[in-house]
């Protein structure tokens, strides 16, 4: 999720039709700038060099989970269709990256699912298998907490929070769920190859 307000304009984003290092590149209709989402910064056009404004208001989960939490929700309907067949199931179950891309950084396998984020401009990633049941990491003077339940599917969002290391609170699941103490940490649930190809100096939390 991204804020659409940049440089005094409200931008209309669409897929550019192209990729950088196997990753989606958006383009906006107002300035024609190119915005690769994995690096998070425009690389060409009037707004080149501008960082994308990520938002922390979103979460992926099954429809049944979402509607039980938010029965009043509205649902996007395109041409009177709210859902359709999954055309990417083969990609998600395959060991290969998009268009046979592979991770150059071999610290993890190409399709290892990760949660990735930036902190003070520095890229970080943590593999899902490290955070099942919850785990926290000290990063400088901050503490980051991640949680995935054992029965979560690949598409379920990772819960990620960040707090000051000296905050007078426990960073644990019960605290996180109550929304106290720590702030949501914006990031990507993605595959290792997709993130690492676009963020070469990623620090791996494990």
């Amino acid at each position: 999720m991204y804020d659409r307000r940049y440089d005094g304009k409200v931008l209309t984003f669409e897929a550019s039709g192209g990729l950088i290092k196997s990753s989606l590149v958006l383009q906006d209709r107002e300035t024609d700038s190119y915005w690769p989402i994995m690096s998070g910064k425009s690389i060409h056009g009037e707004l080149a060099g501008t960082s994308m404004k990520e938002m922390t208001v979103n979460r992926k989960m099954t429809w049944s989970d979402w509607v039980s939490m938010h029965p009043e929700t509205l649902v996007l309907s395109v041409n009177s269709i709210e859902d359709q067949a999954d055309t990417y199931s083969h990609y998600f179950s395959s060991k290969r990256g998009f268009r046979n891309s592979r991770a150059k950084d071999r610290r993890l396998k190409t399709k290892t699912p990760i949660f990735a984020f930036r902190l003070k401009g520095k890229p970080y990633a943590v593999p899902y298998y490290e955070i099942v049941g919850g785990k926290q990491f000290n990063i400088g003077n901050r503490v980051a907490y991640f949680y995935r339940s054992p029965d979560q599917g690949l598409h379920d969002s990772t819960l990620a929070y960040i707090a000051d290391a000296d905050a007078a609170c426990l960073v644990e699941e019960s605290i996180i769920k109550s929304g106290e103490c720590a702030a949501p940490l914006t990031g990507f649930d993605t595959f290792w190859y997709n993130w690492s190809l676009n963020n070469a100096s990623t620090a791996l939390l494990d």
Binding site: K60, H70, L74, V75, L76, D83, D86, T87
Partner: peptide, 20 residues
């Protein structure tokens, strides 16, 4: 069991099918 991207902004909830 279909996945959605759910958001809550200003108390309003919206869901977008990942397949869409």
């Amino acid at each position: 069991d279909s996945y959605v991207l759910g958001i809550v902004v200003e108390g309003q909830a919206r869901a977008y099918s990942l397949n869409l």
